[in-house]
């Protein structure tokens, strides 16, 4: 285990050290002590290493992650795992706004609640939230899956493209062009897979599925007020 204490060493050294991990490096397990809400912790990591952050983090923790498995033993500030490409980011607590924003791939698991705009502009990432998500989640979601075990706030999936949303609880309101869709066997299987990967024990059949009505895909004057 390689240990890095943010109370004693600067953030810049941490990220440089993480970027310096070479292919086949034997330092595959890292722990980061005393994050104390620091921003940009463990960003741009691109090796399949395990990183555990012992405490709460500020903005953009695990930003643009590729391949690494990052676990935050605390809560995360805005922009958790923004633009994640691959790998897994798990938050034991809650996450603030725009969690997994624009994520292209990989898995983001938030065991607690996520605030507004969770999965905004998501481009292929899978997001599983144990609690609730705030308003405008999955806004303009292009691809990937957002699974919410609790409730969703206002405007879920507004202006959504091809992302798929599964919500077990209530949805306060759906955004423009987002509609409830049927759950067939294939969707249940996808959802079961996501729940299993994220480590949640929930019945996929108890979720509802939402996605794009595809009415905003080509400009139509009669839908002008939805743009």
């Amino acid at each position: 285990m390689t240990s890095f204490d943010l109370a004693a060493q600067p953030l810049r050294d941490l990220n440089r050290a993480l970027h310096g991990i070479a292919d086949g490096d034997n330092r595959t397990a890292w722990e980061i002590l005393n994050p104390r809400g620091a921003h940009a912790v463990a960003v741009g990591v691109n090796q399949p290493v395990d990183i555990t952050v012992k405490g709460n983090v500020g903005y953009y923790c695990a930003g643009m992650n590729e391949a690494a498995t990052i676990t935050i033993e605390g809560s995360a500030g805005p922009g958790l795992a923004e633009n994640i490409m691959s790998g897994t980011v798990r938050v034991k607590g809650d996450a603030s706004q725009y969690a997994a924003a624009t994520g292209h791939g990989g898995l983001v698991v938030i065991e607690g609640n996520a605030s507004s705009r969770c999965g905004i502009s998501m481009k292929g990432v899978d997001i599983v939230v144990g609690g609730n998500v705030g308003h405008m989640s999955a806004f303009m979601g292009q691809a990937g899956h957002l699974v919410v075990l609790g409730d969703a706030g206002d405007g879920l999936g507004d202006s959504i493209y091809e992302a798929e949303l599964f919500v077990r609880g209530t949805v306060k309101s759906l955004g423009a062009d987002c509609i409830r869709k049927e759950m067939d066997e294939a969707h249940i299987a996808t959802l079961a897979g996501l729940l299993a990967k994220a480590g949640f024990d929930a019945d996929p059949a108890s979720f509802k599925r939402y996605g794009s009505a595809r009415k905003l895909y080509h400009f139509n004057v009669d839908h002008a007020d939805a743009y």
Binding site: R16, A40, Y59, G63, P78, S121
Partner: peptide, 22 residues
Amino acid sequence: PDWTGPDDLAIKITELREITDW
């Protein structure tokens, strides 16, 4: 999608610098 005012942008820029090692 992930920042609003200039205070947030300052943090966003720090993130970009950290990703690219300044």
